[in-house]
Nucleic acid binder design. Structure first.
Length: 280
DNA sequence: CGTTTTTGACCGGCGC
DNA sequence: GCGCCGGTCAAAAACG
């Protein structure tokens, strides 16, 4: 659909995606993309780490029976109502999908993130349009749609039943517009890999740093501007970034206050961030 | 007042 | 054919 070429990301989608996987692998996370019928556009899924809690990415739907996950024929769009004009435009015949001519699949992928934050910031604005209890999982699954009326990208967010600390995010479709938050980087994020890279990177640097969000923490650690500038950098980060990422992925509970930050980690952060980039 | 979230109902696909 | 389940709609409520 649209979006495929909206932007000038300094790195190819494949590169960004591969790097995302490498990053996630380093952190011991599982990552990959759901079979979306668009194979070949992205790199193959990562071999599921043996120690991975939720098994595999298909967790996005794996928690449910075989009918769901990537296998679910998005034909599920039952609406067929005039109100869904924007979507209808991209669909053959709402609710009229039959075996053999199912609605064209949107490229999609999923990735897992160890965090306590359900909805990861990825630079786009999302509107929640539904929430459903998932079979075999105590956690509900949330459905989001891009607020851009011309954009049909959807996102599913759910927590792994195996490991509640793991959030499984599934994107479907590609944005045909820039991100709201970061116009420059947003162009790249418009691609699937870009979304993932952006989300993960953004997540690593911001969302999982609850301590940084508190006024007191901002005095002792980074300042928001620093983090923001970091976001403009592609995912091609060095090992130090990985270390920072690993650090930031600690459960929020342990990050609730600056005082809880282990000395060793503080030293690490000192190592990571030039004094000039720090606040106060 | 406009936008977003919540939530129950509805629809269609799939397995049995 | 029936029931289960995932995905979506849409009205009402909540929010800024």
């Amino acid at each position: 659909m649209a979006g495929a070429s909206c932007g000038d990301w300094p790195f190819s989608a494949e590169e960004a995606y591969a790097d995302s996987l490498a990053l996630l692998a380093e952190l011991g996370w599982a990552a990959g993309f759901v079979d979306d019928g668009c194979a070949g556009e992205l790199l193959p899924p990562l071999d599921p780490p043996p120690a991975t809690p939720a098994g595999s990415v298909d967790g996005a739907g794996a928690s449910s029976s075989s009918t769901d996950d990537g296998a679910t024929p998005e034909a599920a769009d039952a609406d067929g109502k005039p109100a869904a004009a924007t979507e209808a435009a991209s669909k053959p015949a709402p609710g009229k999908t039959t075996k053999g001519q199912k609605r064209a699949r949107q490229p999609r992928f999923a990735f897992m993130t160890k965090t306590e934050i359900d909805h990861l910031e990825d630079g786009y604005r999302w509107r929640k349009y539904g929430q459903k209890a998932v079979k075999n999982s105590p956690f509900p699954r949330s459905y989001y749609r891009c607020t851009n009326s011309k954009c049909t990208v959807k996102k599913r967010v759910e927590r792994s039943s195996d490991d509640p600390s793991v959030v499984i995010t599934t994107y479907e479709g590609q944005h045909c517009h820039h991100t709201v938050t970061f116009p420059r980087g947003g162009a790249g994020a418009a691609t699937l890999a870009g979304q993932m890279a952006f989300s993960v990177h953004h997540h690593l640097l911001c969302n999982d740093l609850p301590a940084l969000h508190s006024p007191t923490a901002q005095n002792s650690l980074f300042s928001r501007p620093v983090l923001s500038s970091s976001l403009l950098q592609p995912l091609h980060c060095n090992r130090q970034d990985l270390q920072v990422a690993s650090y930031t992925m600690q459960p929020s509970s342990t990050m609730s206050s600056p005082a809880s930050v282990p000395a060793v980690d503080k030293a690490l952060l000192d190592d990571m961030v030039p004094p000039a980039m720090r606040h106060g």
